[in-house]
Design a protein around this nucleic acid. Sequence first.
DNA 1: TCCTAAATAGTAATTATTACGAATGGAGTT
DNA 2: AACTCCATTCGTAATAATTACTATTTAGGA
Lengths: 159, 159
Amino acid sequence: MIPKQQVEKRVADSLEICRRQGVKATHQRTEILRELAGSEEHPDAETILTRVRQRVPTISVDTIYRTLRLLEDSGVIARVGSMRDRARFDANTDRHHHFVCTECEMIGDFYSDAMDQFPVPQEVSEMGSVEGVYVELRGICRKCKQKAMKTEGRTGEKP
Amino acid sequence: MIPKQQVEKRVADSLEICRRQGVKATHQRTEILRELAGSEEHPDAETILTRVRQRVPTISVDTIYRTLRLLEDSGVIARVGSMRDRARFDANTDRHHHFVCTECEMIGDFYSDAMDQFPVPQEVSEMGSVEGVYVELRGICRKCKQKAMKTEGRTGEKP
DNA sequence: TCCTAAATAGTAATTATTACGAATGGAGTT
DNA sequence: AACTCCATTCGTAATAATTACTATTTAGGA
């Protein structure tokens, strides 16, 4: 669980960045941001909608999606996760990367100076100018691995 | 343009990998694979459908999507591109990464030993076992940058 | 050749996301 | 406070991409 104080700081910082870009800090935007900043699980739009509705019961689907796009464009949230599933979001603006479990879709954050400081290959410089990096490590998380072990143990058993 | 010989080799190799997994090499699958292997632009499902139809006029939407999923699961093609747009595909199975233009969605391949050999941080090892890496460099491609320059030149002009 | 499971075509259904039009709300002005 | 103006939101409809269904076809082994 993320400390409340930390959540509020992130919300305040993000809204400040928005304001500097002329994006107003409405009640709905604040709550969406707060929901995301307080979550470690990188929720999808529907999950965010359900949760925010507990506090803002009339919030609409349109507002959720519109706001998520807006916040993404403003650079205070990011879209993460393998593209085979629905979009998921992250309000952590610190430079970091993600581990994605291809089994259960769990997404975890991690930090890596090495990955942050990639040398941009010549090849790429010739294609254009690099402004961001997205790194995703994919694999099987602990939980899923254990589950697989158990299931494997059963193979060969009589029914 | 990719040399025909190279395309055919890629197709043959991919089908061989499929067969070893018990996946049959049907006409449709072969043509979808051939289309992808012969393209450098990382086409989306619809584009693949249109192009393959010139050779296999009766191929269905279902077959395209089903096959793309199957080939992805078999590991002979990959899903690429920023998740804000539709899925795009790549039949290049050599270890490589992508540069994506956030303006025009152009996708270019590049190779980088440095990125291939990144040390997996302890943090991540604790989350699970890493089986793949997806790296995407994002920015503005040459073409779009030039276009932006021209447009910028116009600002301030009378209408 | 014949058999059987797997694959496909054509179409319908589902799901996520975006768009629309009326209504609301907030900042600045008088 | 009342008024204006423009952005934002709500509720719902529409769109776009992807997946599912069922009858028919096909591949590949016995």
